[in-house]
Structure formats: C-alpha cells, structure tokens
C-alpha cells in the first residue's frame, strides 16, 4: 500500500507544486486548504506524513491546531511544518506539540522530498 501524505496550505500553487513533486516520487498525496478540511481528512484517512503551514486562511496559527488534533487523536502521522514564520517561540511551541521537522519557506522541493523520505524511512 502506498504511503499517504497530506499537504495543508492555503496557497493553491504551493499545494499543487508539492502534490505533483511528491506524487512523482511515488507517494499518494491529498491536499487540504483549511483547518476543518484537514481535520475531516485526518479523521477518515490514515496518513504517514502531514506537511502543514502554520498560517491557514484567516487562522494565524491554524497549523498548530492541526498538530494538536493529530496528537490529541493519537494519530501516527509524522509532521513537517513548512512556514514563512521564523519566530523561535513559535518553533518551540510547535516542537513541544510534536513536530518532527521544520522547513522554512521558500523551501526547495527536493528539501521537502528529503524530509518526507527521512520520516517515511522512520515510519517503515
């Protein structure tokens, strides 16, 4: 069974670029643009890795809610945060919530691929 990835970002171009790159790498990829959509997908679909922005639509730190949801529901998904925010406090809070990797926007797709591969290797 192909390992599944969920990309959460309100930027459609970024979602599409990440989707195509990771799908070409052989992963099964879904995308969500807002918090509730991500929560609904996470309720019904088992993802191995979730890549999320911290800012989602009008929610400044909606990504943190996604991470909390994953941990509260005890979902096995590993989490990569892909964000333009560089605040150390935020990084600390996200790390405390159980983030597995941070990527600073703009990130290269191959950096994302390497982070995903590393976590997928860890979940194998």
């Amino acid at each position: 069974m192909a390992k599944k990835i969920l990309i959460i970002d309100d930027d459609e171009q970024l979602r599409r670029a990440c989707h195509d790159f990771l799908a070409d790498s052989g992963y099964e990829v879904d995308c969500a643009e807002e918090l509730e959509e991500a929560q609904s997908l996470l309720t019904y679909i088992p993802y191995s890795v979730v890549v999320t922005d911290l800012r989602l639509s009008k929610l400044a730190f909606g990504g943190l809610d996604v991470i909390r949801h994953i941990r509260e529901q005890a979902l096995p998904a590993r989490v990569i945060v892909l964000t333009a925010y560089g605040w150390p406090e935020l990084k600390t809070e996200a790390s405390a919530s159980g983030v597995d990797a941070f990527l600073r926007k703009p990130a290269r797709l191959r950096e994302l691929g390497a982070a995903v591969d590393a976590l997928m290797g860890a979940t194998a």
Binding site: E37, S40, L41, Y44
Partner: peptide, 12 residues
C-alpha cells in the same frame, strides 16, 4: 474533491 466521499463531506 476530497468531499466526494460522504463521510468526509459531512464531517466537514
């Protein structure tokens, strides 16, 4: 879309 599935649609 993700919402073609009824369970995901109504959960959302």
């Amino acid at each position: 879309t993700n919402f073609y599935r009824a369970d995901i649609l109504f959960d959302y």
